[in-house]
Design a protein around this nucleic acid. Structure first.
Lengths: 272, 272
DNA sequence: TCGATTTCGCGAACGACGTACGCGAAATGC
DNA sequence: GCATTTCGCGTACGTCGTTCGCGAAATCGA
């Protein structure tokens, strides 16, 4: 009880089980898998201590031998999804590699509809997240940008991909409500331009089109952060302050160079 | 009871109060304001029916005369923040206008730290949101893109801005935990590239730098969706399928230039 | 002015939640 | 075999969102 009160380190820094005494019946990994199944099937709200415990055939209190809080469980779930990435060796075209990386993230977000919201609100880094960052940096191996800039790019890649996923999977009922309200609001006649959107036959739901924009958009963002892709990148001296590579983008403002930064945290799997 | 059971339309489509009977003591707007204060001061979790009711000097049950569920209250809060935008007339440079629009959103997200996460997970459209979309479309007045594409751009602008805000305001304690774990993970020696990030002296959070990237990034995204900005846009025939305007999907190389963003606005003498 | 009617205020209660406590059971090390 | 250590988990506490039902307060029609 000495100091274990408030701070409580990341769950991956706390020992899972001890060598002595009665051996545990399950493992964090098993519990995490059960929680993942529940979340995928019934949503994140269904991941309650009681529900997960019941799925294991026991009571809620038992779980507290494995985790200290429900948030620990969510952290484990988030990081667990990071294991679903299939790392691919760099091809020499870093931008294409990064886009492919993002596409994988998109599929994972689709597989676990609760994940995007969780990673946005609770970005957590565990073993899989760490490996993912390392892999991301491998894809950028030889790119001249500063390491801080690369981390920033990693964060933006994840953030925007999550935003994209959330847009794709917006709740059906909610969307219908919004549409219904819009339809009503238009009767006031105060929204002529919006009216043009709802007047013809519904052209709202067409997810494939949105999805088709992803590679382009994410490519633009990454180009903005890391500079235009060129195969000769690896020939240039790595580990410098990168800004020279970038296009001007917002010319009025910043022509400044800020030396190495820290920037993005937000690993791959993280949670709400 | 006939059909009012499950669907329950958007709260703005449900009557606030009736003309007959005992008049209500408060209004939805007043309750919303109280909830906003609570959320800003103590976070979204503190916005419980009991807490908000206590703030009004009453019991939790009373609130149910005004809203049907807590989510209604959250919806009201979300839409209420939409009133904080200060609409500005179009300057002729739509990209600059949209970036300024996004910057306003960023400030609002900063003012209400609970808002970004909420809009991502529960995108809701009420009166203020409707007006906001209308204003957004006004800024794109004359742009040749199809209306559906413009709506898509609206969604991406909001989503990415929220992702940006969430990145900026990532929980301090969580970040420290992540850093602590990373430090530990590096001892395995399996993450050489990541090690390069943590090895030098601490590069602590530098939010201004991240913030400085916002106009550039959002500009690139919007350009990707809507095509490069050109002042002559309004001269072209509006309301067509836009695809011709767009650049190639994956800008592998190609020297792209984004036209001025801020300068044009200033020359027209606009308030933000 | 006076019921009839309609709505409001809200105390009390229900079920589900996260979590703490404590004890008997089960395994280990000596 | 015994002391030690951990595990399983029933029970309980406090908080949450929400429902019920009743007395109070207002409006409406006459």
């Amino acid at each position: 009880m000495t100091a274990a009160e408030r701070p409580a380190a990341s769950i991956w820094l706390r020992p899972e089980r001890s060598a002595v005494g009665r051996p545990a019946q399950w493992s964090r990994a098993e519990i995490t898998q059960v929680a993942l199944r529940v979340a995928d099937a019934e949503g994140l709200d269904a991941v309650s201590m009681r529900h997960v415990a019941a799925e294991l055939g026991t009571g809620a209190a038992s779980l507290y031998r494995y985790i200290e809080t429900r948030e620990d469980l969510l952290d484990l779930m988030t990081d667990a999804t990071g294991a679903e990435y299939e790392p691919t060796p760099p091809t020499g075209d870093w931008l294409a590699d990064l886009i492919a990386f993002g596409e994988q993230a998109r599929f994972i977000f689709r597989r676990h509809r609760w994940l995007a919201g969780l990673t946005m609100t609770r970005p957590v880094i565990g073993p899989n997240g760490t490996a993912l960052i390392e892999h991301f940096l491998t894809l950028l191996q030889g790119h001249p940008a500063a390491i801080g800039t690369k981390m920033e790019a990693f964060g933006m890649l994840n953030g925007i991909t999550a935003a994209f996923a959330l847009q794709e999977q917006a709740d059906q009922g909610l969307q219908a409500r919004n549409l219904a309200y819009l339809g009503h609001a238009l009767t006031s006649g105060k929204h002529p331009r919006l009216a043009a959107f709802l007047s013809p036959q519904a052209q709202l739901p067409r997810p494939e089109e949105l999805a088709g924009h992803y590679p382009d958009l994410i490519g633009r963002v990454l180009t903005g952060l890391l500079g235009p892709a060129q195969l000769g990148d690896s020939a240039r001296t790595p580990q410098q302050t990168d800004r020279a590579v970038r296009g001007p983008a917002c010319p009025g403002r910043q022509a400044r160079r800020l030396p190495g930064t820290r920037a993005a945290r937000k690993s791959r799997g993280e949670g709400m």
